[in-house]
Simulated scan of single mutants.
Amino acid sequence: MNADFHRILTLLRKEKGVSQKQVAASLGISQALLSHYEKGIRECGLEFVVKVADYYGVSCDYLLGRSPDRAGLTLSVEDIPDSDEPGKQNIMQHGSIMPVLNKKLITNSLHIVFDMLAKGGNASLTKEVSSYIMVAVYKMFRKLYGLTPKNQSTMFSVSKVRYSQLCDAAMHESVADIDCLDQNVDLGDMRPLEDRDDFELTTQSLAENYPLFYSSLQNLISNVEDTLGKDSGKK
C-alpha cells in the first residue's frame, strides 16, 4: 500500500471529527484493524479503499496519495488558475513549462497564506511572514543575478560576500519571532496572538474557501515534501 495511505486515512478521520470506533463500525471492521491501517502496520484490500473513499467523499487516488486533489484530479499547467490581473498575459519565453507551473503554484498558494493573515488580523505575524518571504525572494533573485559577471553588483547595497548569510539570519529571526508569537512570549512591541480560530483549517474547508487556489497549494505541499522526504510512519 502507498506510504501516504495511512497518513491520509488518519487525517480524514480527524478532520471529520469522529472516533476510530465510529469509523470502524460504519466500515464494518474492528477498531483494532482500523488502528492497524492508520498506523501502517497492516495493508488493506482494494474493497476497503473503495469503502473508505465513499465514506469520506474523496477519490481513491487521493487516498492512495496519487493525487493531491480530493476529487483525484491531475493538473496540467493550463488547469492551474493564473492569479495575474485579468487580461494580462502570462508570457514565459526561452524556457520549459516548469517556470510557468511553479510560478502559478507559488503565487496561488501565497493567496491563501495572505488571506489567512488578513483574517487573523495580527500585524506582527503578517510582518514576520511577509519579511521571511520577501527575503527568500531577494536571496534567490540575487543568486540568479549573480550567475553572470556581466551584471553590475552596484544594484545592491549589501555586498556579495555578506548577503547570503545575512538573508539566512533574517529568515531565522522571522521564524524565531513567529515562534515567540505562537508561545505568547513578550517581545515588547510585538502583538501576541489572541484569537486563533481563524487559523483552524481542514482540507475540506480549504477546498471550499479557496476553490481556485487550493489545488495549487496541495500540489506545492506534495512537491516540497517529495524534496524534504516524507516521515513514513510518523504523525
Rank of each mutant, 00 (worst) to 15 (best):
R70D: 04
A71L: 09
G72H: 05
T74H: 12
V77P: 01
E78Y: 09
D82A: 11
S83F: 10
D84R: 07
E85M: 09
G87A: 03
K88C: 06
Q89K: 02
I91T: 12
G95R: 07
G95V: 13
G95Q: 09
G95H: 09
G95E: 12
M98A: 15
I106H: 11
T107P: 00
N108A: 07
N108R: 01
S109I: 08
H111K: 15
I112D: 14
V113S: 05
F114D: 09
F114G: 09
M116A: 15
M116Y: 13
M116F: 15
A118Y: 08
G120C: 13
G120S: 12
G121V: 14
N122R: 06
S124M: 11
S124W: 04
T126C: 11
E128F: 04
V129R: 01
S130M: 02
S131A: 12
Y132S: 09
Y132I: 03
Y132V: 05
M134I: 09
M134A: 10
M134S: 06
M134K: 07
Y138D: 05
Y138W: 06
Y138R: 04
K139Y: 01
K143R: 14
G146R: 08
T148C: 08
K150H: 08
N151R: 07
N151G: 00
T154Y: 08
F156P: 02
S157Q: 07
V161D: 15
S164V: 10
Q165Y: 05
Q165N: 11
A170K: 13
A170N: 05
E173C: 01
S174D: 11
S174Y: 07
V175K: 10
A176W: 02
D177C: 15
I178R: 04
D182T: 04
D182W: 05
D182F: 06
N184P: 00
V185M: 12
V185Q: 07
D186G: 00
D186W: 01
D186V: 00
L187D: 02
L187A: 10
D189I: 05
P192L: 10
L193N: 03
R196G: 00
D197G: 12
D197A: 10
D198Q: 14
Q204K: 10
Q204G: 02
L206N: 07
L206C: 13
E208H: 05
Y210E: 05
P211V: 14
